[in-house]
Design a protein around this nucleic acid. Structure first.
Lengths: 295, 295
DNA sequence: GCTGGTTATGCTCTCATTGAGCATAATGGA
DNA sequence: TCCATTATGCTCAATGAGAGCATAACCAGC
């Protein structure tokens, strides 16, 4: 027989003040997790109920990420059994009243946030360290260039996990097996939890392009500019404003509420609402969100 | 404590004679599976070794699909524990010498193979049955149209799982909870294994578009036409020949071997080989494969 | 050797999408 | 009233994808 403990791990993501946030425990060192007890018909459903019970958040989109096994187990009957299976999920939500435990996602991946100026400098430092690690190995050099957009290559925001793994291999992370002389800044998590985080961000960035899941992160009504800022927060880079509007409006994803939001300066912006919740279906399969190639 | 049995399930896929094949057991009614015993550092690695040991296939690309829980367990301590966790993987391979157990994938999903003429008729029958199920429910009608390309909507080959689930819900499959008067033809599998198959095909069709995994299904050298036929086999529909060539050649995915293959008729075709195996990296991240919108 | 059938390969044309920027509209404050 | 600021509308060029014509290179038969 083969007895194994199993655990659900949740990566809950919200966006506030143009920054993606993740729900953490233990001073940002851990992710919400629990034993796989209340599994209902499906894991998905069990996960949703469990999370909504634990945190008071209502979960919009929910998605299984990956299943990891930890082989820390001692030999049992001559075979190395994994002792713990971790099934990770990503969930999107709006920030409730309890702001406790939410941390900026980019605290864990500073290099993934390319919206501000400071990004360039960190980028250069990482590039230097990577090239040193790669040495003359052509495959390594090529990989560095592709994942980090070094050699004139374009930056691909979806390669979050690739970048994390590359940094890990290069010994540039505190959790790396062997350390390089210089380490990339960024908040850590024990075990492979930062890897799970990276998986979640990669998946979210990929998903946001071809399924309208951003709206799960938005309030009921919003301006197109707010929508764009939310997408930018997740994509980690700026988008072209006029083209963003064009793409959104061309797809009938949203409809005007008829009202407008007047901010401190400038012309008031029209308010919109997501049509997917109005129509029966939240998926709207044909529709893609922007971030074509951005800047 | 929480003791659970766990199982690995493998969906092994190969392509032969322009048809995708899947490795099955038990007269095509089952998929290779086994307890999660020999897990090494990672599940992935354990899976690969286990599969390669069981079947004599060398696995190219391998990918985790999904983790299911079966909640058939009786109450233990007042809580409904899932008893079995199934972690499913998809692997790509070339057909070895042992052809035993390989079945045509489209025997399980006849409606997904849209390369021949007969597809139209089956399509019409399914369409009729679906519309009957949908009745006047707008959300249902919309969903049917989107997933099966009914109302002038384009056919989206990646929606394999959506279509399977829709057919299931509509009571058109033998494994459905309630049966409609007419059932869609197609080979069955007990439990949720046909669903796992559908997941694999959906994933493969999606992946083949933006990562050069087709080459894992190809022999060492091949003509562009053979390559196209393999892609078509997986995508389930025909592609435009000249455009396929253009796309492949434009991306430096392949290089000429210098030789040509002369078939029975016509001008001999040049032989190519995949560059990814020559260069260190098998991923070639920037590169997309065809099937843009096809015919 | 020449001819027609057949398949491979090269090239063009058009249309849709995307990246980028200019121009105008509508607000508040000086 | 004028100006700074933001929202919105529109144009233009570059690129990529769908479709089809034209040519090349082989075979079999005469």
């Amino acid at each position: 027989m083969n007895h194994i403990r199993s655990e659900l791990v949740a990566v809950l993501i919200a966006v506030q003040d143009e920054m993606p946030l993740v729900l953490t425990l233990d001073q940002g060192r851990n992710l919400p997790s629990g034993p796989l007890e209340t599994a209902h018909r499906s894991l998905q459903r069990g996960m949703r109920l469990w999370i909504e019970q634990q945190t008071q958040c209502h979960l919009g989109h929910i998605e299984q990420l990956y299943t990891f096994a930890e082989a820390t187990g001692a030999d049992i009957g001559g075979r190395d059994h994994p002792r713990l299976i971790r099934i990770s999920y990503m969930g999107l939500t709006r920030l409730g009243e309890t702001q406790e435990g939410w941390r900026g996602l980019y605290e864990y991946f500073p290099w993934e946030n390319r919206r501000e100026q400071g990004a360039d400098q960190l980028d250069a430092e990482i590039g230097r360290a990577l090239l040193q690690w790669a040495g003359r190995d052509a495959a390594r050099l090529w990989r560095c260039a592709e994942t980090f957009g070094l050699d004139g290559q374009p930056w691909n925001d979806e390669l979050v996990l690739h970048r994390y793994e590359l940094l890990w291999e290069a010994g540039l992370l505190p959790e790396s097996r062997h350390h390089a002389p210089w380490l990339v800044p960024g908040r850590c998590m024990p075990s492979d939890r930062r890897r799970i985080l990276a998986t979640a961000l990669a998946r979210l960035r990929a998903k946001i392009r071809y399924r309208p899941v951003v709206f799960e992160l938005m309030p009921e009504t919003f301006t197109l500019w707010q929508l764009q800022r939310t997408v930018e927060a997740i994509a980690g880079r700026p988008l072209h404003k006029q083209n963003f509007r064009r793409l959104i409006l061309a797809q009938d994803l949203v409809e005007e509420t008829g009202e407008a939001e007047t901010q401190l300066q400038g012309r008031p912006a029209r308010l919109y609402r997501f049509r997917g919740t109005v129509i029966g279906t939240r998926h709207l399969m044909g529709s893609k969100l922007p971030i074509a190639r951005s800047i």
